[in-house]
Design a protein around this nucleic acid. Structure first.
Lengths: 340, 340
DNA sequence: CTGTTAGCGCTTTCAA
DNA sequence: TTGAAAGCGCTAACAG
């Protein structure tokens, strides 16, 4: 017979014995104090503090079949876009028994597959995944898991379960349209390592300019490198070399836009008089820059917030009104695209 | 009698029955395939794939008493300082069975206490906490947990267990010294919501300037608001109102330094000719800015990396050579403090 | 409102 | 090398 050592810490049974009640009564009190009489409740509370008892979440999860873990799969941890959403998710679960388990797919579809099956092994209460481009294999696994799944950042045709984001195709159009409206017409595009959402914005730009005969491949500068402000400077320099007559630039994100601005400053090029600049995401710094930088505001915090809300609704057994939410975006016009 | 439904997914027993072996044999194979004969191994492997079995980590953790969770407590998720460390930690555990559980203390000592006891309830394999200012209650809990604990970002006198970081007192001195060496003498200080490390850098600045009779409280502008680039602009504006003769500014971090630069640009103040600027952390954008911004490079990724390495050593039963590592810092001089 | 019993899925111990 | 039994800490189910 297998005598085991145990963790050394107080267990629910220890508390029960100390308080001279059944273990289940302690369990009940922990989850819903109103289900236990006042007398026992105070006795149990005392035993808990004297024994310094803390419940073991994994034992609870195993017994109840309900894990208190919400998995989140994102392509990057240090990118502010995802960090803002993570913050919202953490804010949303504050005060609940849930814990967030973060997986970093590093923009790698294979790693995404691996993490999805790894995470499902934890039997999480729900899963949040970035984007809508999961592999067929993963999509099947997610279906079968029969837990709330939220795909975020981008809206798509067929959500696995729920979907909260925005149309990056529409965003790409809005950016291009804005520049055209401001009478820019030699419009370039700078982008670093692409994720599917960036690709779709770029595609929008192309398909808007081509019919107008304004598309010029010389003005599109791409790199495989990770996005950064320095990268923005380099890309801008290349663009100015390639096509010095460019009069406006769409940047795949705000870091690149900031770098582009610095490059213009260092070359004595006036923004917006000589070159208009627009970024994407509207990080806080965009409004502080001088000149202030136009960008497309994407409410990344709200995406996380709505995702958690939807999950909690489903966890409570309710069905959210919509299984897909397009939170839209706002093009915030600032000095960098406003010609006097 | 209590018939339970179960999770619906394949269990180790299902696999065992399917392969006509004992459950423990499956368990052994999963953890160390060499302990099982080739014949049974292939049979079990087949059963696993046909049943689509994935082990349940919490059942394993419960039975073995060893959790595969590493807890990380940081004050903010969206701040790049912490995000870089998180990335290192995630990189470090890649390929291991460990999972990272992140707790967001929101710069709140009470929340830190709450999360420490909550996390210890999970019986994590190890815990990483930011800073060295945990409450006495928490310090005791961490001691008693008898797991590897790493305090990061700052070096202190008495590590609870292990400690990896740098001296922010020394960093504050280095920043002040640098400006003095560059013949700045009317040196201001801008800081947003303070954490203990910022406070210590500020204290260093004060205690260096006072004996030289260069300290002027008019030049110290603080705010309770969260740090941001816009905040940097506001603080800089106030400083210029308060003490227009200021000739250099230490910024509590890089965001504020960037904001200060933009404010100078908007007021037509030349950096570094009229005002020198130095930041802290050396985010990537500092080198891209125009003029490039001097900053103190703190290797936040390395902190996370070393923390995870130390933890794995301890988990393997080894004792790391040092229980405290000062990774130091580098003051990177750039144009913003280099007078021609 | 409270307790008894069985069992969640896995691993340890002991035995073959 | 393999397996049977026991139990990790908790809770669902069924009683009282």
């Amino acid at each position: 017979m297998g005598k085991r050592k145990g963790s050394g810490r107080a267990t629910i049974t220890d508390v029960a014995e100390h308080a001279k009640v059944g273990a289940i009564t302690v369990s009940r009190m922990l989850r819903d104090p109103s289900k236990v009489s006042d007398k026992l409740r105070t006795r149990i509370e005392q035993s808990i503090t004297t024994l310094n008892y803390t419940p073991d979440p994994k034992a609870r999860a195993l017994a109840s079949g309900q894990a208190d873990i919400i998995g989140v799969l994102i392509p990057s941890i240090s990118n502010n876009v995802f960090a803002d959403t993570l913050r919202a998710i953490h804010d949303g679960i504050k005060g609940t028994p849930y814990q967030v388990l973060i997986g970093n797919t590093r923009y790698d579809p294979q790693e995404e597959d691996r993490l999805i099956s790894l995470f499902l092994g934890h039997r999480p209460a729900a899963l949040i995944v970035a984007g809508i481009d999961q592999s067929e294999k993963s999509v099947n696994l997610l279906y079968e898991a029969k837990i709330p799944i939220v795909q975020i950042y981008e809206t798509g045709d067929k959500p696995i379960d729920m979907n909260i984001g925005l149309s990056h195709i529409a965003a790409g159009q809005a950016m291009t349209e804005h520049l055209l409206e401001q009478s820019f017409c030699k419009i370039g595009y700078l982008a670093a390592r692409m994720d599917p959402r960036m690709e779709r914005r770029l595609e929008s730009y192309r398909s808007m300019l081509k019919p107008l005969d304004l598309y010029d491949p010389r003005r599109v500068i791409l790199t495989e490198k990770a996005s950064s402000v320095n990268c923005g400077r380099t890309l801008m320099r290349k663009l100015l070399d390639n096509a010095p007559d460019t009069d406006a630039v769409i940047c795949a994100n705000d870091d690149i836009a900031l770098g582009a601005l610095f490059e213009c400053q260092s070359q004595g090029i006036l923004v917006p008089d000589q070159i208009g600049l627009i970024g994407f995401n509207d990080f806080e710094m965009m409004s502080a820059a001088y000149p202030s930088l136009t960008s497309v505001r994407t409410n990344r915090y709200k995406i996380g917030q709505l995702a958690i809300e939807a999950i909690f609704q489903r966890l409570k057994g309710e069905t959210p009104e919509h299984n897909q939410i397009d939170i839209g975006f706002d093009l915030i016009q600032r000095d960098s695209t406003t010609r006097k």
